Simulated assay, not measured.
Amino acid sequence: MDDTLVSIILPTYNRADYIRSALDSVFSQTFRNWELVIIDDGSTDDTVAVINDYDDSRIVYLYQENRGVSAARNHGIEKCRGQYIALLDSDDEWLPKKLEKQLRYMQENDFEICQTDEIWIRNGKRVNQPKKYSKPEGWFFESSLQMCLISPSCTIFTRKAWDVIGPFDVEMPSCEDYDMWLRACLAYPVGLLSERLTVKHGGRSDQLSNCVPCADLHRIRALVKILQCGKLDADQQAAAMSELGSKAKIYRQGCEKRGKKDEAERVWNLFCMMRDGKNISLNLLR
């Protein structure tokens, strides 16, 4: 693996208090042939000062006006050079042998996409993952419809795979990973190195999952996209339509509880159009 270049894509926005742990975990890797592409998505805190503490030619720093995590990742991947692409969120971290072991597992088992298992830290304390979040291996498109079963910071994929499944949808302020992993699970079997080599931090109020509203609407958009892609077989189409109905129902009920009757009916009517075999514009689901 010595001649394999891994491009680590690390988007960040106002994470000066957390990014140092992510950076330290990259520099602690036993696999050394990497470049670290940091995409600063318009930070206004001390993020640049923290990054400047790391003097290493393997760091590529890119700055952009604030456009969101999808645009940041896309920008970094566009500029990177590696045959393999590893994602790392700026508030997560890796154990030292993560890249070494994962690359070996991918190459020995001929996977284009692979993830590791992970340790969950919530509000500074380690917690056990509910069983429903257990990571599968292989072909699991139908299972991935219900919830996102691939974690960005756990994942490495080849440039060949990126050309098939990318880019991230810049119109989605959240659930952009759910959207892209649906495409990934449709196109490739996904490898799982079942060692907890990624540390995923959560529970803070500033995380996308907590501060971006209407996550259910974004998941509905992702399902409409995959249903309209023209690549699903009959069973996959039926499974995706069933999940779309479930998520549309949940969204409708949530809107009704909040007195948003017009929005509830609008999205439900869009689902009914899909159920009746009509295509709809994604502009209606932003």
Results as ranks from 00 to 15, higher is better:
residue 107 Q to H: 13
residue 149 L to E: 04
residue 129 Q to N: 08
residue 18 Y to W: 07
residue 161 A to L: 03
residue 253 Q to R: 06
residue 278 K to S: 15
residue 70 S to L: 09
residue 78 E to C: 10
residue 133 Y to K: 07
residue 233 D to T: 08
residue 68 G to Y: 04
residue 245 G to R: 06
residue 21 S to F: 03
residue 61 Y to S: 11
residue 136 P to G: 14
residue 214 C to E: 15
residue 40 D to V: 01
residue 105 Y to F: 15
residue 222 A to C: 02
residue 256 E to W: 02
residue 154 C to G: 05
residue 85 I to H: 06
residue 73 R to K: 12
residue 181 W to V: 14
residue 206 D to N: 14
residue 169 D to S: 12
residue 73 R to G: 09
residue 136 P to K: 14
residue 210 N to A: 15
residue 239 A to P: 12
residue 28 S to E: 09
residue 204 R to W: 05
residue 160 K to S: 14
residue 71 A to D: 10
residue 271 F to E: 04
residue 77 I to E: 02
residue 277 G to N: 12
residue 276 D to F: 13
residue 193 L to S: 10
residue 36 L to P: 04
residue 124 G to W: 13
residue 39 I to M: 01
residue 48 V to L: 14
residue 240 A to E: 00
residue 97 K to G: 11
residue 208 L to F: 10
residue 228 Q to C: 09
residue 72 A to W: 02
residue 109 N to Q: 15
residue 118 E to S: 12
residue 220 I to G: 02
residue 241 M to A: 13
residue 211 C to M: 10
residue 46 D to W: 01
residue 220 I to H: 04
residue 207 Q to C: 05
residue 187 A to V: 03
residue 101 K to Y: 10
residue 74 N to G: 12
residue 230 G to I: 10
residue 20 R to P: 00
residue 229 C to T: 11
residue 51 I to P: 01
residue 92 D to T: 04
residue 278 K to R: 15
residue 224 V to C: 14
residue 31 F to E: 00
residue 112 E to P: 07
residue 255 C to P: 00
residue 144 S to V: 01
residue 105 Y to C: 03
residue 233 D to P: 02
residue 278 K to H: 15
residue 176 E to T: 09
residue 15 R to Q: 14
residue 133 Y to W: 14
residue 179 D to L: 06
residue 65 E to F: 10
residue 66 N to D: 01
residue 147 M to P: 00
residue 239 A to T: 13
residue 53 D to F: 01
residue 18 Y to S: 12
residue 23 L to Q: 03
residue 205 S to I: 10
residue 260 K to H: 11
residue 4 T to F: 11
residue 236 Q to C: 13
residue 139 W to Y: 15
residue 65 E to L: 10
residue 182 L to E: 10
residue 107 Q to C: 10
residue 37 V to Q: 02
residue 128 N to C: 06
residue 187 A to K: 11
residue 168 F to W: 06
residue 9 I to M: 09
residue 82 G to R: 06
residue 189 P to I: 11
residue 282 L to I: 04
residue 225 K to E: 10
residue 219 R to N: 00
residue 158 T to S: 14
residue 27 F to M: 13
residue 182 L to A: 12
residue 19 I to W: 07
residue 236 Q to A: 15
residue 135 K to V: 15
residue 272 C to Q: 15
residue 120 W to F: 11
residue 215 A to K: 07
residue 262 D to Y: 05
residue 133 Y to D: 09
residue 227 L to Q: 04
residue 88 L to R: 05
residue 261 K to P: 02
residue 117 D to G: 12
residue 68 G to C: 09
